[in-house]
Design a protein around this nucleic acid. Structure first.
Lengths: 342, 342
DNA sequence: CTGTTAGCGCATTCAG
DNA sequence: CTGAATGCGCTAACAG
């Protein structure tokens, strides 16, 4: 059913029907109700393309998916998307996932813009001098960044306090008496990874403790790398008595490594993991329950969608910056260092 | 830049430029090249909405996301989406994720159709008499189902051999000498869940063994439920000496439960998990390495996208049915039952 | 091989 | 308060 047909049914013009449906004030109340009812009855809904062509707004925001399987499409992504979609539905916007072709991410972003399929873009996983951010800023295309960069030109972003999270966790461990604390985090170059390392270093330096570069590991997030890297760390002498894990997946691997070395988790070796809050993988239900620096990536997604809508509504991007605090939740996987019983 | 401007630049008509860009045969080769170059140079790309309005095809396929956090948006989803998107990019199609509003899923599907934002839909997680399938079939709207139903009306689907997977796994365990095998799978009502239970039962019945209903558990997939249910199962006397886990998340919980009860995994209690193949959570890297019934949900996503494209191209849906075999990969978490040493 | 013309379905001027 | 006419940018007959 199209607008014209609906209008004919009602004996009204397309214009009036359109106005009634879109909530224009100058329509008679009785008429509006009659139109609404008929629309419902016939299951009429405007052809999105025609509508968009006419009003010049797309009604969708885009996010690029890396084609490459490895790095970025993990459980975080799905939680984040979920938050995005939840919020966007409130604004009757769609979420368009476009896979980037040929590893040429920048070209994919350009194509997304020039084909006018989205009103705005969400950018995730930035590096310190992210070229996508630079490009989009220069092109003046609306976007919100999940994370931060060192790029000076104003742009909208939301990030969690990664440095604070790792500083807090490291400080806590040091205060408990640990003297050898290691961290296994995500790949180098990404802002979050650099910030976390900064926080970790700050906590050590603050106490006048040395930084051992062997104890700072940057790797892909997965149980496998967590396992291997933790095994390696634990084979040093002296080995770390506490390990920070950059993700829950990493943490699972670290848990296994500690057990396979015969250490008691939470006593001989402590673990604090960063938890993006997965409904299907709960830190408090592990054995022992895992101490985490916790921040909901789903909420971040939701909020970012909201911010992008505001950008689209014309709010100046230099006003749109948020840093979310990260909460340290103490559970059983961390405690004072206890020497092995052997 | 719009088509008209590009045409003016080149001193050609819109038509010719359009044809050149869209690969129509009747264009002079030299002209076509000149046009392509210019398009590249000016960064021209057709306005997707105008194009779609004119051609009547949307160029996107839709998938509904449950708004509810709990059940279906887990790690499986992200892998599946990833496969979809990968394939769709080859056809220059977008993936539209629309969140369902107010728990009224059916209405959300209707809205998605009537607003003409997608050419086709992908439906996942069906129940045996899935109402979405019934509705879409009746509305003659193109879709492909991931999974199966008992609905007779012809429709396109792709499913893995869930019954076979659990039959195979159960048979293997029984052949090893296990006499008490339990299963912890997804929620009842879902086809995959019913099929898996069927497979499990068949293996027992084939050997004349009794089915103990206490040993059949249907719950949400998560490490937490895996843990709790496995603990419960292991508290029975006699307790199961082998447990089938419906997902990797469940399996993680089951692992923990077995350890917390002091049993040796792979010896005193065996575990076989269904593995949808997550790049960040690898069965072979667990300790002990986990025996799995394995099937790539990412590949399934990719193939389903391909099938939907074929449906859109007019291929009769009654021809589009695929059942993928599931491979049993033996590793260390399963073995002959060994009595506890106490 | 190329150009002219007429919609695709809607929102919006501008008149009534 | 309502309607008739115009255009959003593109593709697809239909002519040349």
């Amino acid at each position: 059913m199209k607008l014209k047909e609906l209008a004919d049914q009602l004996g009204l013009s397309q214009t009036t029907v359109s106005r009634a449906l879109n909530g224009y004030p100058e329509v008679n109340k009785a008429t509006r109700e009659r139109v609404s009812e008929a629309a419902l009855k016939f299951g009429y809904s405007a052809n999105a393309n025609a509508r968009r062509l006419a009003i010049g707004r797309i009604g969708a925001i885009g996010i690029l998916m890396p084609r490459d399987r490895s790095e970025r499409f993990g459980p975080h992504t799905s939680e984040f998307f979920s938050g995005l979609a939840e919020q966007l539905s409130l604004h009757e916007m769609d979420l368009l996932m476009s896979p980037s072709i040929n590893n040429d991410e920048l070209a994919a972003y350009r194509r997304l813009i020039s084909s006018k399929r989205v009103d705005g873009i969400i950018v995730t996983g930035p590096t310190l001098m992210d070229e996508r951010v630079a490009m989009l800023t220069e092109a003046k295309f609306p976007f919100v960044l999940h994370g931060r960069t060192n790029i000076a030109a104003p742009h909208a972003w939301l990030d969690i306090d990664n440095a604070g999270a790792f500083r807090q966790a490291t400080s806590h461990l040091l205060d408990l008496g640990h003297r050898h604390v290691a961290m296994i985090d995500g790949l180098k170059g990404h802002t979050f990874s650099e910030h976390r390392e900064m926080g970790y270093r700050e906590a050590l330096v603050e106490r006048g403790l040395p930084v051992d570069p062997r104890f700072i590991v940057h790797e892909r997030f997965s149980d496998e790398t967590g396992f291997h890297e933790a095994q390696r760390l634990l084979s040093y002498a002296p080995h770390p008595t506490a390990i920070l894990a950059g993700s829950m997946m990493t943490a699972l691997g670290v848990f296994r490594a500690i057990r396979s070395k015969g250490y008691e988790l939470g006593k001989e070796v402590s673990v604090i993991a960063h938890d993006d809050v997965f409904p299907y993988l709960n830190a408090s239900n592990m054995v022992p329950a895992m101490t985490t620096t916790r921040s909901s990536i789903r909420s971040a997604g939701s909020r970012i969608a909201e911010l992008l809508v505001r950008v689209l509504d014309g709010e100046p991007v230099e006003n749109i910056h948020e840093i979310w605090p990260v909460e340290l939740v103490l559970r059983q996987s961390s405690g004072p260092p206890i020497a092995p019983r052997r």
